[in-house]
């Protein structure tokens, strides 16, 4: 790939006291690429994603977007650079309705600076209908919606704006099979539009189904970055658990190449 990466993270470090949550990790992402980010709970992957989302400030390292160095002071900066995040917790304000959540922090306004709730409702209706034609409860507080509907709002919020990079933290963990299939379709669709996606997941099936590459973190360090065709599920499991590939990996790979 000769293009400029959408995002480069170079030598990122994050410490909490003496704990190295992210230990000199570098990662890049190209347009139209889906990269699976794997690892145990506490391996540092969520931390790394939060740094890219602007929700956490690294102690060291550099982030480049389209080749240009950036510094994210808060999530607004990352979103302005086209980096959107779907958090595992969904990050929804329970008492507000779907349009208010969709546009939270980026409210549409009238010329007078008033909230343009009518337009936000209309736009929400459109983007939600694209994800789920049956979505109707637009004026209910999101606390009264089902897990799937809440997930749809979180996804809609991440794709409505001019998104270039999408971070998805366990997007299917709370979903049933049919909804999971919908998310998978959506990922392929976004990929075709040239959006780069970082998919944090525990679901090996999803990862092998959707990703072009996998990166594996273990105890804060990046222990492997491989094209999806270079590794088997067992190889990836070994990276996650032991932090290294099985001993016979290079031999097997050599065989496969021949």
């Amino acid at each position: 790939m000769s293009q400029t990466p959408l995002v480069e993270m170079i030598g990122i470090e994050k410490h909490f006291g003496g704990v190295r949550a992210v230990d000199h990790v570098s990662l890049d992402l190209y347009p139209g690429e889906v990269v699976g980010v794997l690892g145990h709970n506490g391996a540092g992957k969520s931390c790394l994603m939060r740094i890219l989302a602007g929700a956490m400030i690294p102690n060291a390292g550099e982030i480049r977007v389209n080749g240009k160095a950036v510094a994210f002071a808060d999530p607004n900066d990352a979103r302005a650079a086209g980096i959107e995040t779907i958090y595992q917790t969904l990050a929804l304000a329970d008492h507000l309705d779907a349009p208010s959540n969709l546009f939270l922090g980026r409210e549409l306004k009238t010329w007078f600076g008033n909230l343009d709730d009518a337009r936000m409702l209309e736009e929400s209706r459109k983007v939600l209908a694209r994800l789920n034609p049956n979505f109707k409860n637009l004026s209910d507080p999101v606390s009264s919606l089902s897990g799937g509907q809440r997930q749809v709002i979180a996804i809609a919020r991440a794709i409505y704006f001019d998104t270039k990079v999408l971070i998805m933290d366990e997007p299917t963990a709370a979903l049933g099979p049919s909804e999971t299939a919908m998310v998978a379709d959506l990922i392929r669709q976004l990929q075709a539009e040239g959006i780069g996606i970082l998919l944090v997941s525990h679901d090996m099936h999803d990862v092998f189904d959707l990703c072009n590459r996998v990166v594996v973190m273990n105890k804060g360090r990046l222990v492997g970055a491989h094209g999806i065709e270079e590794v088997s599920k067992d190889d990836v499991l070994s990276l996650i658990v032991k932090g290294e590939l099985p001993a016979d990996w290079s031999a097997r790979n050599l065989e496969a190449a021949q």
Binding site: P75, T89, A91, A93, H95, L104, N114
Partner: peptide, 26 residues
């Protein structure tokens, strides 16, 4: 509270402070 952005953000902050912060609410 009803028609201005600051009002919406006041509700969002009290509803889920972390979510509001991640959504870009100061």
């Amino acid at each position: 509270l009803r028609r201005r952005q600051i009002g919406r953000h006041i509700y969002a902050t009290g509803s889920n402070e972390e979510a509001a912060r991640l959504s870009g609410v100061r």
